[in-house]
């Protein structure tokens, strides 16, 4: 049932470019989709490990920069008169590089930050993104600093018989994001239903207990961070090749906050939470545009976030699911979505 519902949703989304070929609608949906992938990856940390990681924009930005730089090529001095040079690579190499670099930094941050918990952990993750922003801003030779990396090639796909096809058009970009998003969703579902997922939930619920029964807490946390960072890197890479310009502000705290709001609103620790929250917050700015100035919108998001945490702390998806079982007990579609792990 769950799978049927999920695939119906994917099919409905895939039909959008055919039914509404309006480029503006597609561009809004594509951007929303990219941030939903970011939110799905953040949910793995925030929802399933219970660690409030507020440096998520770091992985998103790293993926974006790595992917853009690999596909643009670079030639930089690395001290001692040595130079590091890379010729422009195909975009899919950049995409993989984006995932790898973000994943590697995920491992580094995991190793560093999971030495501490609570407030310290939160502050370290924030500082991590901040340092990366400073590097992107000032390592002009590599990143072009505030001038931004421009002219990033669009994503491309290898198709049998046609070779490498660049994805210029809005429907193509949209389908690509939908495809990657579906993969990310399935991967996260696989992870949370595996041994790793059970270990993560065990330590979220009671770390001391989990430790005492022999779960290697830091080990599993680092695995979750690497996975989460890798998916965020993939989202960042899609972003870079979609908007085709990247600047140091992708590391800003506000991007992390956007993803956090998506996860919290939809329901952290539920598979569909980030998707629902992401759709709401990805589409709202454009629906409200013209009727409310951006400042007023952000004020509304802030208020909504406060109200949700205070009165609906589990988010929309569990709340809606909570209403359904009253009809008839087996509502496995929703129940499976809500269940953090079997």
């Amino acid at each position: 049932m769950s799978a049927v519902f999920g695939w119906l949703f994917v099919a409905a989304m895939a039909a959008v470019p055919v039914v509404f070929p309006d480029p503006y609608v597609l561009s809004v949906l594509t951007s929303a989709g990219i941030f939903i992938i970011g939110a799905i990856s953040l949910n793995l940390l925030l929802g399933y490990t219970g660690q409030l990681s507020l440096g998520h924009a770091a992985f998103f930005g790293l993926g974006a920069y790595a992917s853009a730089l690999v596909s643009l090529g670079f030639d930089i001095g690395i001290g001692f008169g040595l130079r590091l040079r890379l010729d422009p690579q195909p975009v899919f190499v950049g995409f993989l590089a984006g995932i790898a670099v973000a994943g590697a930094f995920g491992w580094l941050l995991g190793r560093l930050a999971f030495r501490v918990r609570g407030a310290y952990f939160v502050v370290i993750t924030i500082c991590f993104a901040q340092v990366l922003r400073m590097v992107a801003l000032n390592w002009v030779e590599l990143t072009q600093g505030p001038m931004a990396l421009i002219g990033i090639p669009p994503a491309s796909l290898w198709l049998p018989g046609q070779g490498v096809v660049p994805l210029y058009t809005k429907p193509q970009s949209f389908w690509l994001v939908l495809g990657v998003g579906t993969l990310a969703f399935l991967l996260v579902r696989q992870v949370v239903q595996s041994r790793i997922g059970r270990a993560l939930v065990a330590l979220r619920e009671n770390e001391t207990l989990a430790r005492s029964v022999g779960i290697r807490v830091t080990h599993y946390l680092v695995i979750a961070t690497v996975l989460s960072a890798g998916i965020a890197g993939a989202a960042g890479s899609l972003f870079a090749h979609y908007v085709r310009i990247i600047d140091p502000d992708v590391f800003l705290f506000i991007y992390t906050v956007t993803m956090v709001i998506m996860v919290i609103t939809g329901g952290k620790g539920t598979l569909w939470g980030p998707v629902v929250g992401g759709l709401i917050f990805g589409l709202m700015p454009d629906l409200l545009r013209g009727s409310a100035p951006p400042e007023a919108q952000w004020i509304a998001y802030g208020v909504l976030m406060i109200l949700l945490v205070m009165f609906l702390p589990r988010g929309i998806v569990p709340a809606v699911a909570g209403l359904l079982p009253a009809r008839r007990r087996p509502a496995p579609a929703i129940a499976a979505m809500v269940e953090p792990a079997p």
């Binding site: 219970g50 409030l52 609570g118 407030a119 939160v122 906050v257 956090v260 919290i264 951006p294 400042e295 007023a296 952000w298 004020i299 998001y301 802030g302 208020v303 909504l304 976030m305 406060i306 945490v309 205070m310 702390p313």
Partner: peptide, 18 residues
């Protein structure tokens, strides 16, 4: 502590945009 942090982030958004 995490929920309180999220509430404070929401408050910061409201204050800055106001």
């Amino acid at each position: 502590i995490d929920s309180v942090m999220l509430v404070m982030i929401g408050a910061a958004l409201v204050l800055q945009n106001a």
